[in-house]
Structures are given as C-alpha cells and as structure tokens.
Design a protein around this nucleic acid. Structure first.
Lengths: 133, 133
DNA sequence: GTTGACATTCCCACGATGGGAAGGTGTAAG
DNA sequence: CTTACACCTTCCCATCGTGGGAATGTCAAC
C-alpha cells in the first residue's frame, strides 16, 4: 500500500505520516524498489490509533507512551488508565483556564453599553493595572 | 525607561516587547544615543494593555484591532463589544471541543478495569475504526 | 514513449514564546 | 582610568503540529 492509500485508509495526511516517521513516533516504513514507502494493514491500524489519540487531544509524547502500551502484551490496564486520567486532568485545566477568560470577558461585555459612544469599560479595564500588577 | 524596566512595569518580557515591535503590534520605541530602546509611561500602559489582552486569550491580530480602538477617540463601544463577543464565541468553541474530548475519555476510563491485566477498552477503542472512518 | 498521477526530499511558514551567542553600553567601585 | 558587571543590542535556533510548495523521481495506462 502506498502512502496515499495508507493516508486515506487511516485518516492521517501523507505529510503527517512522514513527519511521524521522522520523529520516531512510528517505525520506518518498508520501501519498494523505487523508494516508495509501503504500508501493511497493521501499519494503517497504528496510524489510525495515532489519529484517534490526536483527536482526543493527546500530545505526541503521550501517544508514544500509548503506542508503547498498545504493543506491549504484558501491559497493565492500570497504566493505560493512569495515562488517560492524567490527560483528562490536563484537558480540564485548559478548560478551566479558558472558562476563566470567558467569565471575565462576559462580565466586561455586560458592562459595555455597545452603542455609538466611545466610553467602554472593556478597554478601560484592559488599560488599568490589574490584579497581578 | 530601559526595556528591562518597561518589562517589569508592564509584565511583558523584554523578548516579547522586541517581538511585538518587530511585527508592528506596537510602534517602534525611541532610541537613546547608545541604541537602547527608551519607553515612556504611555508605552508601558500600552504594553500592559497588550499583556492583559493576551491573558484574556486574545490573539495578536485581535489585539491589534483592540489597540486600534483603544487609541481611536471616536470609536463606538459597540465595536469593542462586538470584538469581545466574537472572542468569547471562539473561546467557547475551544472549550466545547476540549469538553467533548474529556467526555469521551471519561467514558473510556470508566470502562477500564485499571488492574494488572492487559485488557483495556481504552486501547481497544483507539485501535478500532471510529465514527469518522 | 508520453502523459498524468503519484511519490520522494528539502525548505519555509504559522503563533507566541524562550534560549543563547557575540558583541556594545552604562555605571559604580577600585 | 580601568575593570567588572549588569544590562542592552541583533541574530539564529527551538518548540508543536501542521500545511504549502519546489524540484525531482517512479509507476501505470494508453
């Protein structure tokens, strides 16, 4: 299977497949006589694994860990679970940071008349020294 | 005021001050005879404005817009409000994407025994074709 | 054998930030 | 006056994950 077919089958762009190979996230693909990368079904399955992990927000190093566990038949599911839970905590931290921004912005927006006049509590708040200053 | 002092006073690193200047987000600073950048209080105020906007998750282009409104005495507060509301929507989209990941991961984690055995529904789900395949 | 669709490698870009090297400036103490 | 030190300058490189494009090579079909 060519890289293009593997790309379609896995949902990972050819560009990213080469990149993942270059950083060692996935093993180097076999090559045909003409130098084309050649993929088997198991390779595609691994690529799909990577893509789905990316869709769930795992970073490349985290995916490297997941792939290690994936191919380790003597793995403990507790290790996988721990990894997933740590990732959930990271995601929730990011959500909480973003939510904090939204809350602040909402309170500012609520104070802004939103009319033709220039007076705007949003800008005034931004220019004033804040809590951390 | 030197860049170091302006940095302390504004909470923006010297590195970022130079960067903001290089991309045209802030005007080029005056220079002393020795070539040092020199900042006045109004410059520091602008830097603080930028930092606070960054803290609220605004991108550089958005901050450029905000700075434009900030220095425009004939601005309409409605324009500022619109910009802030659009930003809130962007943030909420990101939150919703992250929350979707968390929800999926939570449901997987809930199915994982988390013991010494290798069987793990998290890995199994990642390796299987998903909704979008 | 030509054409067209693929493949290859290599370099560049993003956004926002940090690190560090190599060299210049300013100031305080010896 | 010199030396030391803290600060400044510019320049390049790295991150992370992804895309774009150029120049060149391969394969399959007609």
């Amino acid at each position: 299977m060519n890289i293009g077919e593997a790309s379609k089958a896995s949902g990972v762009s050819a560009k990213m497949i080469r990149y993942y190979e270059s950083i060692g996230l996935i093993p180097s693909a076999d090559r045909t006589g003409g130098g084309y990368r050649s993929y088997a079904d198991t390779d595609v399955q691994r690529l799909r694994f990577v893509r789905r992990a990316r869709d769930l927000g795992f970073s490349i190093p985290e995916i490297a860990d997941l792939l290690g566990l994936w191919s380790d038949r003597s793995r403990k599911s507790a290790d996988v679970k721990r990894l997933a839970q740590a990732h959930i905590e990271g995601l929730e931290q990011r959500i909480s940071d973003l939510q904090q921004m939204v809350d602040t912005l909402r309170s500012l927006v609520a104070c802004c008349a939103g009319d033709d006049r220039p007076d705007c509590p949003i800008l005034e708040t931004l220019e004033k020294p804040g809590i951390r200053d």
